[in-house]
């Protein structure tokens, strides 16, 4: 996926038992972001695969002052790429991981 300068990873082992994930996002390459942000802080949040959208979470992060509006697309894309990967892995694993 195109490198947004942001890294998103699972904050906890994916138990696959429900649609909720614990994710962690932080800035890996500050030069790739346009607006103001905090470099060495990781933001942990829950993401519900059925109810949430990456855009909505990115919007909340911008509203909370973690990122500038101009970076919300990059934040959403980073979350979307990771969630898509997790869904693919879940599909490949036997039921219940």
């Amino acid at each position: 996926a195109e490198d947004t300068g942001l890294r998103v990873e699972l904050a906890e082992e994916d138990g696959c038992s429900n649609s909720s994930l614990a994710l962690r996002l932080w800035v890996e390459d500050p030069k790739k972001l346009k607006g103001k942000h905090k470099d060495n802080e990781a933001i942990e949040f829950s993401f519900n695969l059925e109810a949430d959208t990456p855009e909505e979470v990115a919007y909340e992060m911008v509203k909370s002052g973690f990122f500038h509006e101009s970076d919300s697309k990059a934040v959403a894309k980073s979350i979307r790429d990771r969630v898509t990967l997790i869904k693919k892995i879940r599909e490949k694993k036997p039921a219940g991981c």
Partner: peptide, 27 residues
């Protein structure tokens, strides 16, 4: 810990903590 901060926005909880040193070196 004092380094962790919890922020709520529209019912969503964000837990902010320092990026582990090891992860910073990785990038």
């Amino acid at each position: 810990s004092s380094l962790t901060q919890v922020v709520h926005s529209a019912g969503r909880r964000f837990i902010v903590s320092p990026v582990p040193e090891s992860r910073l070196r990785e990038s």
